[in-house]
């Protein structure tokens, strides 16, 4: 795994060799997630990469086959209720048990459960996200359900937010409003956020840590600036028939070529890579930084296999 040199300190979430299989399918394999306290950690991966399974293990809704997970130092399997009391969870799919309740009734229900429920803030969120209190939960559209879930997750200001595709089903205007509310939420109280998404672009300016899950494996994990410093696009002028040298093969994530120009995405120190490329006969014509999304997606195969 390619990982950053995050100092060992306080982690809000840490998993140790976490593995989970469904039949012969491996959903998580030896995952060592490290979410620093106070971080906005974005977990990227294609559908089925294991993001939702990871969240379910953290919420003790699934038992891992191997390894363990801690939230604020509490074991998620042993201390499930204590963990859940500190976590605001927006699941990818809404469970059905409260379908006959109105939104207002469900919000009251949640308020009674959490001692730290902030009624004034909940009212503010209901208005800002245009949740209609009189509607029945079972009759909500996907987007309406998401908005209700966000109210329920944010209103007691939990120390950790676990957001699984939080903007799924929201229209662009509500999407932006929801993310603005999240930014304000972070300014009001210290909160750690772990967000699973395949829309990393919309989180580009909120994220400070990034993890990439690929077929159940965490293939990259590092602070955001480090990712953008380490993953860059190189345009090379090369002799005919040139190939990326074997010693650099492991760092080359993407490549395409046109005539004597090769464009490739490489991981590592720019000066060092430029020197090694020169030694291998390639002249670096241009080096460009990538948007966060492109830097993260570089770790995922172009054709999912």
């Amino acid at each position: 795994m390619i990982h950053g040199d995050t100092a060992i300190g306080e982690y809000a979430v840490a998993t140790h060799g976490l593995s989970k299989r469904y039949g012969r399918e491996s959903a998580l394999e030896q995952v060592d997630l490290r979410v620093p306290d106070g971080a906005v950690y974005v977990l990227v991966g294609v559908n089925g990469a294991g993001k939702s399974t990871l969240f379910k293990v953290l919420m003790n809704l699934e038992r891992p086959d191997a390894g363990s997970a801690e939230v604020f130092g509490l074991d998620t399997g042993r201390d499930g209720p204590e963990v859940r009391a500190q976590v605001g969870y927006v699941p990818e799919r809404q469970d059905a048990p409260y379908r006959s309740m109105t939104c207002a009734r469900l919000i009251e229900h949640a308020a009674a459960y959490y001692p730290d429920w902030d009624h004034a803030y909940a009212d503010h969120l209901v208005r800002a996200l245009a949740v209609r209190p009189e509607r029945r939960v079972g009759g909500l559209s996907k987007g309406e359900t998401r908005r209700l879930q966000l109210v329920l997750a944010l209103a007691y200001r939990p120390s950790l937010l676990l957001l699984d595709e939080p903007t799924d089903g929201l229209d662009p205007v509500v999407r932006r409003r929801a993310l603005a509310l999240l930014a304000e939420h972070l300014a009001d109280a210290p909160t750690t956020v772990l967000i699973a998404t395949h829309h990393i672009q919309e989180l580009e300016s909120l994220a400070d840590h990034v993890g990439v899950l690929r077929s159940g494996r965490l293939v990259a994990q590092m602070p955001r600036e480090e990712l953008q410093r380490a993953v860059r696009s190189y345009q090379l002028e090369v002799p005919a028939g040139w190939e990326v040298p074997r010693e650099l093969e492991a760092t080359a994530l993407r490549r395409s070529s046109a005539g004597r120009v090769v464009q490739c995405t490489l991981v590592g120190d720019e000066r060092e890579l430029t020197r090694r490329l020169a030694a291998a006969g390639a002249r670096v014509r241009e080096v460009s930084t990538l948007a966060l999304e492109d830097a993260a997606l570089a770790f995922l195969p172009e054709d999912p296999s």
Partner: peptide, 17 residues
């Protein structure tokens, strides 16, 4: 603008502001 206002307006991490 306060950190909170600017973070919300730009949708950026308040730490950045």
């Amino acid at each position: 603008p306060s950190v909170r206002e600017l973070a919300g307006e730009l949708v950026v991490n308040p730490r950045t502001v």
